[in-house]
């Protein structure tokens, strides 16, 4: 019993320590961003990596999810004779919830894991130490461009996801099941308000910062955890940890943001 309590205490302290470290990293990044030199080229490279290279994945998952939503909504709405609400249902689900959340989860899986692995490997091969010894701030050189790229890329990817998901819903509803095009489009236009778009935008901005920050912190501070002494195995451990933690953080903060803004 005592041992279990001890374990709970240890996990809680470790969790608090890691949260504090991640928050501290955010403050350091903000501080570094305010000071020259400004690394536009590095940020553009990271936007290419996080954003542009995730585009195909986002398009495929967006179309698929839009089609699934169209299918499910159609079968439910048909029972009540309300298929004219199909456009509204798909649009609101995608813009308010699924777009930002699914985009963030896809970015975590594709780019977030790579970010953690890259920084973790750089840490264990002394590349981060080398930067410090060259009087180059690793926060500014390695972490800040990734966080800024996340902040810019995730909302843009979410916009792409939303657009193609709406098209997926349109394809299933209008092309496959013969719902009137005007009914689908007008339902969508009438139902979606600026508030819904703003909520989706706020979510995607917060998710973008959150996932890149967690993934960066996991790899960057790898040496301060038990995984730091486990070499390549340690990198795989922190990478898995970063993906799981980022995904949970996205889902939990989705609820929180929804609760606050609703």
């Amino acid at each position: 019993m005592l041992k279990k309590l001890e374990n709970i205490g240890t996990y809680t302290l470790t969790g608090l320590e890691q949260t504090g470290r991640t928050f501290n990293l955010l403050l350091l990044v903000l501080w570094e961003l305010a000071r020259p030199p400004y690394r536009f080229y590095t940020i553009v490279r990271q936007i290419y990596f996080i954003g542009a290279r995730s585009l195909s994945l986002i398009v495929i998952s967006g179309v698929t999810i839009g089609m699934v939503l169209g299918l499910q909504f159609y079968s439910i709405l048909e029972r009540f004779g309300s298929v004219n609400l199909l456009g509204a249902g798909v649009a609101l689900s995608v813009i308010r919830e699924l777009g930002p959340v699914m985009t963030a989860l896809m970015v975590v899986g594709r780019a977030g894991s790579a970010i953690t692995a890259e920084l973790g490997i750089m840490r264990i091969t002394e590349q981060v130490d080398a930067l410090e010894c060259m009087a180059i701030s690793p926060n500014k050189y390695l972490v800040a461009p990734k966080v800024i790229a996340g902040l810019i890329s995730v909302p843009l990817l979410t916009a792409v996801f939303d657009s193609v998901a709406l098209f997926g819903g349109y394809f299933v509803g209008v092309v496959m099941f013969g719902v009137a095009e005007g009914s689908y489009m007008n339902g969508m236009i009438d139902a979606v308000e600026w508030e819904d778009v703003r909520l989706g935008l706020v979510k995607s901005v917060i998710f973008g910062v959150l996932i890149t920050l967690i993934c960066c912190a996991k790899g960057f501070y790898m040496h301060l955890t038990k995984a730091g002494s486990q070499g390549a195995e340690g990198v795989s451990f922190v990478t898995t940890d970063a993906v799981v933690l980022s995904s949970i953080a996205v889902l939990f903060s989705d609820f929180l943001i929804g609760a606050i803004f609703s």
Partner: peptide
């Protein structure tokens, strides 16, 4: 100061 690390630490 210049430092040459054991494993090189090249990027």
């Amino acid at each position: 100061m210049g430092v040459a690390f054991q494993g090189g630490a090249l990027f």
